[in-house]
């Protein structure tokens, strides 16, 4: 990764890419950006790929374990944010908030997240107060 991309000016110049990654090559409407969902679970897979990077999280619930897929931007978007192919290991505990998929699948577009010890994901400020609204299917 080019460390130059961590410079604040570059990050600011590319900041517009973050949410626009949703709109970049396919339709806008898959995720409801007016809503928010938060899950807690353990990482089962980290796919460092294009056109989207994906984090798979197993979320334990009353009805068993639900498999959530969290969609991020492209590898290029993610590098600017400070993520890398080694950002997560299988079994890492995570708490993730995002825009849920409209049709009810256990999928969201990433907004913010933190590790089990409270450390925020790269490129973010720690979340202020959060209202957890965990759903599982």
């Amino acid at each position: 990764m080019n460390p130059i991309t961590r410079r604040p000016a570059i990050a600011a110049a590319l900041a517009v890419l973050w949410m626009s990654a949703l709109q970049a090559h396919h339709g806008l409407a898959t995720f409801d950006t007016t809503k928010s969902v938060t899950i807690e679970g353990s990482v089962s897979e980290w796919q460092w790929t294009n056109p989207h990077v994906y984090l798979y999280v197993d979320v334990a619930g009353a009805q068993g374990t639900a498999k959530w897929r969290i969609e991020f931007g492209s590898i290029g978007n993610m590098r600017v944010r400070g993520f890398s192919r080694t950002s997560f290991k299988i079994g890492d505990k995570v708490r993730v908030t995002g825009s849920p998929r409209r049709d009810g699948f256990t999928e969201m577009f990433f907004r913010q997240g933190s590790l089990g010890d409270g450390q925020p994901f790269p490129g973010q400020q720690p979340a202020a107060s959060e209202q957890p609204s965990t759903t599982s299917r």
Binding site: H25, T49, N50, P51, G76
Partner: peptide
């Protein structure tokens, strides 16, 4: 960056 659209 490299961007292979069909990989995933």
């Amino acid at each position: 960056n490299e961007y292979v659209c069909l990989e995933n």
